[in-house]
Write a protein that binds this DNA or RNA. Structure first.
Length: 315
DNA sequence: CTCGATCCCTGGACGC
DNA sequence: TGCGTCCAGGGATCGA
């Protein structure tokens, strides 16, 4: 499932293959995962001026006509190179947003190659290739966004886990009464973390997934932050995790799945203490953890039990 | 605010 | 061989 490292890997691939390419025409198959398929005709004639990642989203920034990225005007006299490093760039009139969901793949493919069964969008490019989006389960999402819509889209997003500093991370986690697993998965807390890297970072920092954010110590919180960043960075280097069917923009699988220490390892020995890894559902998601290294929190609110007992008695 | 449940969707695993 | 069932999960949504 594409999370931050997988999306980053795909983005880097696209930067090598589609940057500066002009979109000549648009083909759409099934469109129920597209916000506004009728707007996609606007893609024709536009040039892919920039490709970036925002959490688990990919943003293909578009420039009108034949202008390449080097001729895009940037407000405030910033150079394009500088603008790239800012978190949210707004100088492009429109962007194509792509979310890979569970099974989405996007890649530049030779136009001669027949469409795959679950290819739903194909953009003909000016180099004889096609930028194709393929997604069997259609849990992904695409949208043609004006600068205004993009601003709305990005408004409530959480911090980038790779850039967030100690103070902000602490504030975002320790101010909440949700379980840490839920917080890590919440894209309005941190953008880009999914089930795999949440479990991996919790295992690494020896924190049980059902611990409550506000009850983590500052030390634990910072250990978690460092673990998360190290794991994400390492996973990016390894081109992501290929479980199920993740492939990068070149159709290559990643390697990081070989380094998973918790995710998907139910019943297998913990790499630290040999205790069998367990799987529980937390925040509605499978959560893999070591019951010895990651001690469970003491009973969460006994509110339910108390209310019931007292209620019966007093009424 | 926080929770769990439900839905979306299809391929793959599993049981018979 | 084939069919039915269950499960996976990111995110939206809804009721408690």
């Amino acid at each position: 499932m594409p999370e931050l490292p997988e999306v980053e890997t795909v983005v880097r691939g696209l930067q090598k293959t589609v940057l500066g390419r002009k979109i000549l025409s648009v083909w759409i198959g099934k469109s129920d995962f597209i916000d506004n398929p009728e707007e996609f005709t606007r893609l024709s004639g536009q040039t892919i001026a920039h490709v970036e990642r925002f959490g688990k989203f990919m943003l293909l920034r578009l420039a009108k006509g034949d202008e390449g990225e080097t001729t895009v005007s940037v407000p405030g006299g910033q150079s394009v190179a500088e603008a790239k490093s800012t978190v949210v760039v707004q100088e492009y009139a429109a962007s194509l947003l792509v979310h890979l969901g569970m099974t989405g793949q996007i890649a530049s493919i030779d136009a001669e190659i027949p469409l795959e069964k679950h290819t739903h969008v194909s953009l003909a490019l000016d180099d004889g290739r096609e930028l194709r989006y393929t997604d069997a389960r259609r849990f992904g999402r695409m949208a043609y966004l004006t600068a205004e819509l993009l601003a709305k889209e990005v408004a409530g997003a959480g911090a980038d886990p790779l850039e967030v500093n100690a103070a902000e991370f602490s504030q975002r986690i320790r101010s909440r009464n949700s379980r840490i697993k839920a917080l890590l998965l919440d894209q309005s807390v941190l953008r880009g973390v999914g089930n795999i890297y949440a479990d991996e970072s919790l295992w690494r920092s020896k924190i049980h997934p059902a611990r409550v954010g506000s009850k983590l110590t500052e030390k634990e919180t910072q250990t978690l932050r460092r673990a998360l960043q190290e794991i994400l960075n390492r996973a990016i280097v390894m081109r992501g995790s290929s479980i199920s069917d993740f492939l990068d923009a070149n159709g290559e699988p990643g390697e990081y799945q070989r380094h998973h220490r918790a995710y998907g390892r139910e019943g297998k020995p913990c790499y630290r203490c040999r205790t069998p890894i367990r799987r529980v559902i937390v925040a509605g998601r499978s959560s893999y953890f070591c019951p010895k290294c990651q001690p469970a929190p003491r009973q969460r609110k006994s509110k339910r039990r108390k209310v019931r007992k007292l209620g019966k008695r007093s009424r």
